[in-house]
Computed example of a mutant assay.
Amino acid sequence: MAAPRTKQQTLAWLRTLTGELSTATLKRLEDTLPWYRDMPPGRRSAVGLVAQAGITSFISWFEDPKSIPWIAADVFGAAPRELLRSVSLQQTLQLIRVTVEIVEQRVKNDDESLREAILLYSREIAFAAADVYARAAEARGLWDARLEALVVDSILTGEYDSELPSRIAALGWNGHGEVSVLVGTAPKMLDVDMLRRTARHLDADVLIGVQGSRLVIVIGRVEQEVDETTPPVEQRPFLEIAGQLEPGFGSGHLVLGHTVASLLEAARSAKAALAGFAVARAWRNAPRPALADDLLPERAFAGDPLARSTLINRIYRPLHDHSTELLTTLWCYLDNGRSLEATARELFVHPNTVRYRLKRISEVIGYDATGAREALILQAALIVGAIAGSPKSRS
């Protein structure tokens, strides 16, 4: 019976097997792992380097077991960084298993201590693989957070560059079509994952950014896949989505900007939401969330040029162009404290005529002058329209 080999003899024997084990490992990968076969040649070569490094690393570790933390890290240092994005952790563990099986089969008739060393080393390599992928995921998360903050900042400032579309794509933005921006107070403990889960549940995607004490969320709808057997689902209004996201904000006002056609136009919605958020305290019973367009009077009084132009272009000018009679009726109605009788007396008409004209005003511009809040918006539109020197407003 042959005498047991010494450790130095075993090491020398293992070094002679390095090439043989590497070749056998690559062949086994080819035969048993479809994802490896389907890889481009460059990535297959990188995977092969990892397998070979694992075998060489085992021999080095067997010589000095105290080197576990360093040797294990060197195995994955042989692969290019982009390999982590193309090979999953599950696939990496399959690679480790195949490599260990090849080594075990070759030394199965050797002494027990060598087989135990292989088992211990394979465990350390598996933990090292998990650590590498965890660190990569953490780094990716930090990078994504910085990139997302940069995109949101670009939207808020309206300073776009040619790289913005690629940055948005890198974040995996799934929004399609219209977009709206929601602005509120940042909570003490921001739960980004909760906000994203809520958005996904509502068939929406979000970009989240914190600007000082403000929390800004850019909301986009996710395009739903429908077929002949599935009826199309009606899109949720942005106000409904904002209402579901509301618990993720801190206390204070919450303002939703108007809807724009695409993410690249989101700066307009953001400007409206920020302007509304700045003056929302002036609306004593402001809902949460409130529409930025419902804060047009306060925004205009605070000097927001977008609010003034919106009041003129959406209310004052369409009403004047449609009928100066309706515009005059609205002036009188608001000046007389929304009294039908007082308005009728001033205009020398019947109160029912005033009612009819108010109904026509609502049909033309979409605002009901008989409501207190909408009356304020209309009053502000008349004031800024007259100040702007728009067409003559009174007969």
Rank of each mutant, 00 (worst) to 15 (best):
residue 327 L to P: 00
residue 340 L to G: 08
residue 128 A to N: 06
residue 9 Q to G: 05
residue 132 V to P: 00
residue 277 F to A: 12
residue 44 R to A: 10
residue 166 S to C: 00
residue 165 P to V: 02
residue 330 L to S: 02
residue 135 R to M: 04
residue 133 Y to K: 09
residue 48 G to M: 04
residue 243 G to W: 05
residue 74 D to T: 11
residue 159 E to C: 04
residue 380 A to I: 01
residue 346 E to L: 13
residue 67 S to D: 15
residue 239 L to R: 12
residue 234 E to G: 14
residue 84 L to M: 13
residue 90 Q to F: 12
residue 131 D to L: 04
residue 295 L to M: 11
residue 185 T to Y: 06
residue 177 G to D: 07
residue 352 N to K: 15
residue 312 I to E: 07
residue 75 V to N: 04
residue 247 P to R: 08
residue 197 R to D: 05
residue 251 S to Y: 04
residue 383 I to H: 15
residue 383 I to M: 12
residue 233 V to C: 00
residue 270 A to I: 03
residue 378 L to W: 14
residue 126 A to H: 10
residue 263 L to F: 07
residue 69 P to G: 11
residue 65 P to E: 10
residue 99 T to W: 00
residue 354 V to T: 09
residue 168 I to C: 05
residue 263 L to N: 01
residue 248 G to E: 02
residue 15 R to S: 03
residue 306 L to N: 10
residue 24 A to W: 02
residue 81 R to W: 09
residue 115 R to I: 01
residue 358 L to T: 02
residue 259 T to Q: 12
residue 1 M to L: 11
residue 274 L to M: 14
residue 153 D to Q: 15
residue 70 W to A: 09
residue 231 P to E: 14
residue 51 A to N: 11
residue 252 G to C: 03
residue 363 E to W: 05
residue 90 Q to K: 14
residue 342 A to T: 07
residue 45 S to M: 03
residue 311 L to D: 12
residue 160 Y to C: 04
residue 283 W to V: 11
residue 21 L to W: 13
residue 77 G to T: 03
residue 63 E to C: 00
residue 361 I to F: 06
residue 148 E to G: 02
residue 33 L to G: 10
residue 256 L to D: 03
residue 93 L to R: 15
residue 18 T to G: 01
residue 168 I to S: 02
residue 305 P to K: 12
residue 369 A to D: 09
residue 393 S to R: 13
residue 208 I to G: 05
residue 118 I to W: 09
residue 278 A to D: 14
residue 257 G to D: 05
residue 332 C to V: 14
residue 13 W to E: 08
residue 175 G to Y: 01
residue 204 A to H: 07
residue 25 T to Q: 04
residue 287 P to T: 00
residue 371 G to V: 01
residue 334 L to N: 04
residue 176 H to I: 00
residue 268 R to S: 09
